[in-house]
Design a protein around this nucleic acid. Structure first.
Length: 286
DNA sequence: GGTGCGATCGCCT
DNA sequence: GGCGATCGCACCG
């Protein structure tokens, strides 16, 4: 793990917010009991989110610290920047999902991709194409674009400056609400499957949608003002240096010619939650 | 650890 | 009618 990645994980421990558990094997071992129960359907998981019910300690702490953290919510000015800049600026920021009963799930963004629209042939908005599905890409910066893929999964983007430009959120480091994230992920896996490690909860664009319970109907919501999903800065995170950020080719767009190889994916060097490591790109930007 | 493959359905042509 | 900004699992070393 690089200095920067270490720094992020350490920051979680130092702050002593129990939700920000560092990605330690020991922490995972402590939670082995969680998966003994068969995966419950989504509905019943959400029904378990009852304010009167017994809640994991980290969620209680989430309530305790909630007001402090709210001050760090990022407003519309933050999102109003060019696509590539926004994709890099997202790294280290914290995505928050507030569930119906007030429990909050938090994850630090560690991997993004820029989709520029217009000339970018890999973008859903390539050539200025506008459809019912991709409307959110043309809405004001900070608007969420949630779309289904492969029939069974969802991906979340955030619109930026530029016609049809948006940033795909690819991976998060789970900071708070891991037990609920694990339940939400387990609901889609086969019964008896092994327990997911913390670093596996949100290390992919569709995994993070599942783990944070982001549904299709969140499409076109405004990250700057929505009461159920927003972005926070982390005041204790060290500023990123250029070498902390790896620029690599995007994932899963091989059929788009020259645009497939452009370095429009950005991730935190050495971070364990990155979905696909590109060693060649890391060598080039060392 | 890495690689290969099948599932599955909404969206667009 | 074809394809996809993915994922989980089996298999191999």
């Amino acid at each position: 793990m690089t200095k920067a990645a270490k720094c992020f994980c350490m920051a979680g421990r130092k702050r002593k917010t129990p939700g920000a558990v560092a990605l330690q094997p020991a922490a995972n071992d402590d939670r082995r009991g969680d998966v003994q129960d068969p995966p419950a359907p989504l509905k019943s998981i959400l029904a378990q989110n009852d304010p009167d019910a017994e809640v994991p300690s980290e969620i209680e702490f989430s309530y305790y610290f909630k007001n402090d953290r709210r001050e760090h919510r990022l407003g519309e000015d933050f999102f109003d920047q060019p696509c590539i800049g926004l994709a890099k600026a997202f790294l280290g920021k914290v995505l928050v999902r507030r569930c119906a009963d007030g429990t909050e799930l938090r994850g630090r963004i560690v991997e993004t991709e820029a989709y520029l629209g217009g000339e970018d042939k890999a973008s859903h908005s390539a050539g200025g194409k506008r459809t019912e599905r991709n409307t959110a890409m043309y809405m004001k910066p900070g608007t969420i674009y949630v779309y289904p893929i492969y029939g069974v999964y969802l991906c979340t983007n955030v619109s930026s400056q530029g016609e049809g430009a948006a940033v795909l959120l690819r991976s998060l480091e789970p900071l708070e609400g891991q037990p609920l994230m694990r339940q939400l992920r387990a609901a889609r896996r086969r019964e008896g499957a092994r327990q997911l490690k913390d670093k596996e909860l949100c290390n992919g664009p569709s995994k993070l949608c599942q783990a944070l319970n982001i549904p299709r109907c969140f499409d076109r919501r405004d990250l700057a003002s929505d009461p159920e999903v927003w972005l926070e800065g982390d005041p204790e995170a060290s500023p990123l240096e250029p070498r902390d950020v790896v620029s690599a080719s995007r994932i899963g767009i091989d059929s788009h010619g020259e645009w497939a190889s452009k370095p429009l994916r950005f991730y935190l060097r050495g971070h364990p939650c990155v979905s696909v490591v590109n060693k060649e790109a890391e060598r080039q930007t060392e």
